[in-house]
Simulated scan of single mutants.
Amino acid sequence: MTTSTEDFAVRQTIYAEELPGWGSLRIVPLIPSEDIELVHQWVSQPRARFWGMTEKSREEVQGIYEFLDSLDTHHAFLVILDGEPLALFQTYEPLHDPVGEAYPAREEDIGMHLLLAPATRPIPHFTPRLATSLIKYMFSVPGKDRIIVEPDARNAKALRRLEATCFELGPIIQLEEKEAQFGFLTRAGFEQIQAEQSTR
């Protein structure tokens, strides 16, 4: 089954924000059985090699996301802008993930993964503005005050995005499937950045 714009319009909204000059941004739950064609198309492209699914079949990808959907600690979402899906966004509880064994994880931590869809049109300052909205959502989750990211250490583009979004880079650590670069952003640090930007 292929999801249509109309399907996204009626899907439960986890977070919404009106972005001047962009339109209406929404975060909605990923439904594996309905969204698999879209997601498999994204993750199987060479540009998504660091996502780790380029060789996986449609059925394998759907199985992975159905497993995630069964967990209370891991969540997958689509980011929608005016009806158009623009990104695959995942959050997780580091204390309930292998990542939590690689650093002193806390209940207040929330981890994230982000895969941008292939661009269909130019959107000025897309990545930093999208990241700001996702960060706002994660800090709206009760009890969370620090965001954890661990992209592949070879993914230079992702590392540049982190630094542009004011994440503090931590150690490089070895996970089962990759050598990862830790990055951290605290609620206090994000609020300070927002305050500084508002006075410019």
Rank of each mutant, 00 (worst) to 15 (best):
K144L: 08
F167E: 03
R200Q: 06
I147N: 01
L71N: 11
E55F: 08
Q174K: 05
Y65I: 02
R129A: 11
K144E: 06
D109S: 09
A188F: 11
R187S: 10
P85M: 11
P46R: 05
L68G: 03
E6A: 15
L185Q: 03
V99Y: 01
D109W: 05
G63D: 09
L25R: 04
H113T: 05
A87T: 11
A164C: 00
I147Q: 00
K157R: 10
A188R: 14
L38Y: 02
C166Q: 11
L159Q: 01
P128E: 10
R154M: 01
K56P: 00
L88M: 10
Q41V: 00
E176D: 10
A76W: 03
T2S: 12
E93D: 15
E59Y: 08
L86C: 10
D72T: 15
E17C: 13
I14T: 14
E150F: 02
T5I: 14
Q174S: 09
I80W: 04
H75R: 15
E179I: 06
H113M: 07
E168L: 13
G100E: 07
L86Y: 06
L81F: 12
W42E: 04
G63K: 04
P20Y: 12
P98Q: 11
F67D: 14
R160Y: 00
S4L: 12
G170F: 02
G83N: 08
P151L: 02
V43R: 05
E6C: 03
G189C: 07
L25D: 01
I173W: 00
H74P: 03
T13V: 15
R49P: 00
A102K: 14
A156K: 08
G170D: 05
P171F: 10
W51C: 02
I193P: 00
M112K: 13
Y65R: 01
P151C: 04
T199D: 09
H96R: 14
L95Q: 15
D7K: 04
E163T: 12
V28Q: 03
